[in-house]
């Protein structure tokens, strides 16, 4: 699980061009969206859907279903695990 989380962080940094961040800047439990967290927005949510499709073969057809999944690294990782 922790390897999955580290991979996710690196993939997020690449997919979203977060070039000023390193994986250690992203806390597992911190919110990814909104001003409290990384400040990601709904366009990033669509990029997450691409990321999950390309890297994990997971299909999400309705972005509005994905709000909770995309909350944090922790929630993303548990979702990916649950799809295996």
């Amino acid at each position: 699980m922790s390897e999955l989380k580290e991979n996710l962080k690196a993939q997020i940094i690449e997919q979203l061009n977060l070039e000023d961040l390193t994986p250690s800047d992203i806390k597992n439990e911190a919110p990814l969206f909104g001003d409290e967290g990384l400040g990601l927005d709904s366009i990033d949510a669509l990029e997450f859907i691409v990321l999950l499709d390309v890297n994990y073969g997971i299909k999400i057809s309705d972005p509005s279903d994905a709000r909770e999944i995309f909350h944090s690294i922790d929630s993303l990782a548990s979702f990916i695990e649950s799809q295996k």
Binding site: E47, D53, K59
Partner: peptide, 11 residues
């Protein structure tokens, strides 16, 4: 290839 496309460049 694949079902989903990155939207940022289009936007």
């Amino acid at each position: 290839e694949g079902d989903v496309l990155s939207p940022t460049a289009f936007i």
